[in-house]
Design a protein around this nucleic acid. Structure first.
Lengths: 217, 217
DNA sequence: AACCATACCAAGCAAGCGCTTGGTTTGTAA
DNA sequence: TTACAAACCAAGCGCTTGCTTGGTATGGTT
């Protein structure tokens, strides 16, 4: 496979993780018909919103007829759900790897912040935005399913924050901190433009971690 | 007018501000037909999203026929825009008053955080959520109009944060901090439930301000 | 050569949508 | 009482939507 973009400065090989997940059938190959559709769907859902994106829009984006979509997915909602599920799977795996590469809890937190910023502003950014802003477009049943996957993801954060609290490095409540961070980091998608120069992702990570005011061990 | 809810522990009389704005025709009287519709619209838009809320839903919520809506508003989008515009106007006025009541820049920041938490989680909470999550449902023209109003609101924040930076109390960049706060505070709408006990709004405000790590003057 | 699953097209249906229309009720003021 | 505007109803138009249907290429397997 050809690497189409610059390698990240994360301590993990994102592409290798992706290949593993593809092999396990947990996410679609971006080069397959299904994968291409999901990428275009994420782009359109982010750009116009789920409801304003028609199945005709989706079909046109990958160059087929609207009816042909339903050969790959049974409903339009299933497409939205697939975008969300595969994104969570990929990002959970990346986060897990990033954390395992870190030694101290401090470094683990830094790795989580950095990885989440990359999730939100990098390749999977469009899908992450969909995850935040199109949540209510899922049926309640689908919401519950996706929520289960998110819980695994959230547990990673709470483990590290909880450990930092026990160490005495963190004063505030881990749950509150995680929720504040969720909001603050998600929101970067609306304003943070690293490619325009200025703040790098590492710089932004520094500011975020500094903002938490971890006291010295 | 009857006060339907407990007075707030804000250093300003929110109801008095509301009356002034109604008199100036800047926001609708909540007891008028228009005002009631806007409140129900905010509720429904928040609950189901703008696109999934039909004009028939809106009409039913106030007990009229769908066609009769268009006696009050020319389009469905105009309803969404009105919800947003009136909410910004009210909250800008409340914030301005809260700030004027504070002396130091520290206190002003605290007042802003507290007031924004109240905006998001109090009476105007549903409308504030609409402002965040239904942004893209506005036409580009309307977006630009609403953005102008938001700029006034944002200037309040940046003034205070900029002053704190000059004082040396704030280390991070005011723009970055404001954006982080926007995300973190907005996100509270998805999880913060003060009525269930636990964290009070004052307590949450403390945690937020503490999180910024303002150094002593 | 025969078969068959996969991937697609062309056409269109039923339902729901925002909004319009023509007419009726209601409140207010001369 | 008359006059008139604001508020509303009943009906439905025209369009778009998600999705279905019946049929057709394509490529691999036997």
């Amino acid at each position: 496979m050809v690497v189409l973009f610059k390698p990240l400065d994360l301590p993990v090989n994102q592409d290798q993780i992706l290949q593993t997940l593809i092999a396990d059938n947990l996410v679609s190959d971006p080069e397959s018909a299904r994968g291409r559709l999901l990428r275009e769907a994420a782009r359109l859902f982010r750009e116009k919103g789920y409801e304003r994106t028609t199945v005709r829009d989706l079909a046109a984006a990958v160059g087929i007829q609207s009816g042909s979509l339903f050969h790959h997915f049974r409903t339009k909602e299933e497409i939205l759900k697939a975008v969300m599920v595969e994104t969570i799977r990929l990002n959970t795996a990346v986060m897990q790897a990033a954390m395992e590469a870190a030694d101290s809890n401090r470094d683990k937190l830094r790795a989580l912040v950095s990885a989440e910023l990359e999730s939100i502003n990098g390749q999977t950014g469009e899908a992450m935005a969909v995850l935040v802003f199109e949540w209510r477009s899922l049926s309640e049943v689908s919401q519950a399913e996706v929520l289960k996957l998110r819980d695994i993801y959230e547990a990673l954060w709470l483990d590290v924050l909880g450990a930092l609290k026990e160490e005495g490095a963190l004063v505030a409540d881990p749950f509150v901190v995680r929720r504040m961070l969720t909001g603050a980091l998600s929101w970067t998608v609306t304003w943070y433009r690293p490619e325009r120069g200025g703040l790098t992702r590492e710089g932004l990570t520094d500011q975020v971690v500094a903002m938490l005011g971890l006291s010295q061990p």
